[in-house]
Simulated scan of single mutants.
Amino acid sequence: MNQLLLPLLLMLVVAIPLVLGSRKQKRAAAEQQNLQASLAEGDRVMTTSGLYGTVADTSDDTTIDIEIAPGVVTTWLRQAVREKVAPPVEEVEETTSDDEPTTVAAVEDTPAEEKPGPQVAPPLEQGNKK
């Protein structure tokens, strides 16, 4: 009896993490399939490569079209979508009838033409070396 107890315990110590790991993988795969099936036009998504965009077309079973910039639509495999993300939110101060400023979260609706571009530093002036 004692000779069988040690190998049995050793097998249990090895088998339990394997079973729990495979269950976790199956659950993650099911969640990913549910995400890919639930994609709809207008959803903000992030791809596996870290690209953010808005779903433009979901008519194909294996691919989706993602708008990555205004007027720029690219085609991706559904499996390349990692997760849905919320639209960007910025805080805006509004005044109420009591003239007290109130901070409110507002979805950014500013067109790309009105957004300030990146700030570029002027070139460094090199002194004359003599």
Rank of each mutant, 00 (worst) to 15 (best):
D43I: 01
V92R: 10
L4I: 09
Q3N: 09
A37L: 05
E94P: 01
L39G: 00
R44V: 06
T48R: 12
N34L: 12
P87Q: 06
L20E: 15
V89D: 05
V13I: 13
A112V: 11
A80W: 02
L39P: 00
P123V: 05
V14L: 14
P118M: 10
G53R: 00
E125V: 11
M46Q: 08
K130N: 09
K26E: 13
Q3I: 06
I64T: 00
M1I: 09
A30R: 13
L20S: 15
E100F: 07
R82G: 04
V73H: 04
V81K: 00
Q32N: 04
P111E: 04
A15M: 10
A40V: 10
G50E: 02
D65C: 03
D109L: 11
A86V: 05
A40C: 08
T58K: 03
R27N: 13
V120M: 08
E90L: 14
K24T: 13
G50S: 02
D57W: 04
E94S: 11
V14P: 01
Q3H: 10
P7K: 01
A30D: 15
V92T: 13
E93S: 12
Y52F: 14
V104E: 06
T95L: 13
V45H: 00
N2D: 08
V19C: 15
M1P: 02
V107D: 07
E90N: 12
E91I: 12
G21R: 04
K84L: 02
A106R: 15
Q126P: 10
A86P: 03
A30H: 14
M1W: 07
S38G: 04
D109I: 12
T58S: 05
D65G: 03
R44N: 12
E100K: 12
N34Q: 11
R82W: 04
V81H: 00
T110W: 04
P70K: 03
E83Q: 15
T47C: 02
D65W: 02
L124D: 07
D60T: 04
Q79M: 10
E93C: 05
Q25Y: 15
S97E: 14
E83Y: 08
A37E: 06
V104T: 10
E93N: 07
V14G: 07
V120Y: 05
V55G: 01
M11E: 10
V85T: 15
K115C: 08
G71Y: 02
T47M: 00
L10S: 11
A105T: 11
V73M: 03
I16M: 13
T63C: 02
L6Q: 11
